[in-house]
């Protein structure tokens, strides 16, 4: 049976969607394909709207908003969910200014967020304040070492996990792009390159 999945906006920000009317070879499945196509479009709108919220979050709430949106998108987007297939890791984020601890727990193909300590995080990221984490995760690409050199962040643990998280955050941001959008839109979305 031919199956057509929703266009992968996150993976192909530079491509326009293909018209399913042209690609469907078997007319018997036309209705099913059309439903999937429009459901995919609807999901795309929802995802863009959700991710758009991140850009409007105030600095102090930025991380929690990002994690919550990430958690939701992981539920509704099977392609994005592949990032955490068989991935088990706990992250601890600490706001150095407010001393608020936020844990991101990836387990069973889900992301749970807890406002508390975790005992054995793979990586602990201490950021100077809300603006510092916002600046890092909205830069393009996130430059962890530059932020560390500028004393805006500090980390302990396995750096690879932090880099993976930065990649996921960037992929999430790309979802805010309209169909056919380019990386340039993302730069515009974050005001200017390397800034937020």
């Amino acid at each position: 049976m031919n199956t057509i999945t929703a266009p992968k906006l996150a993976d192909n920000p530079g491509k326009t969607e293909e018209n399913p009317h042209k690609t469907a070879e078997n007319p018997i499945h036309f209705r099913e394909i059309r439903i999937k196509h429009y459901f995919g479009k609807f999901l795309g709108i929802i995802k863009r709207a959700l991710v758009g919220i991140i850009s409007r979050a105030v600095a102090d709430k930025f991380l929690v908003v990002l994690l919550r949106i990430m958690s939701l998108i992981l539920i509704i987007d099977s392609n994005f969910r592949k990032n955490i297939k068989d991935f088990e890791a706990e992250y601890l984020f600490i706001n150095g200014k407010s001393n608020i601890h936020v844990a991101a727990i990836f387990k069973d193909n889900k992301l749970k967020i807890r406002k508390r300590q975790v005992s054995d995080p793979k990586v602990t990221l201490v950021f100077k304040d809300g603006e510092a984490i916002m600046k890092l995760l909205l830069s393009y690409p996130p430059n962890i070492f530059e932020a560390a050199l500028k004393q805006e962040i500090d980390f302990k643990g396995n750096l690879n996990y932090l880099i993976k998280f930065a990649y996921m955050a960037l992929t999430l941001r790309n979802m805010a792009l309209p169909p056919g959008g380019t990386n340039e839109n993302t730069i515009h979305f974050s005001n200017q390159k390397g800034q937020y």
Partner: peptide
Amino acid sequence: GMMIWAELNTISTR
């Protein structure tokens, strides 16, 4: 090699 993970979408166009 892991260091470019966060740059997979941007390394081609940096």
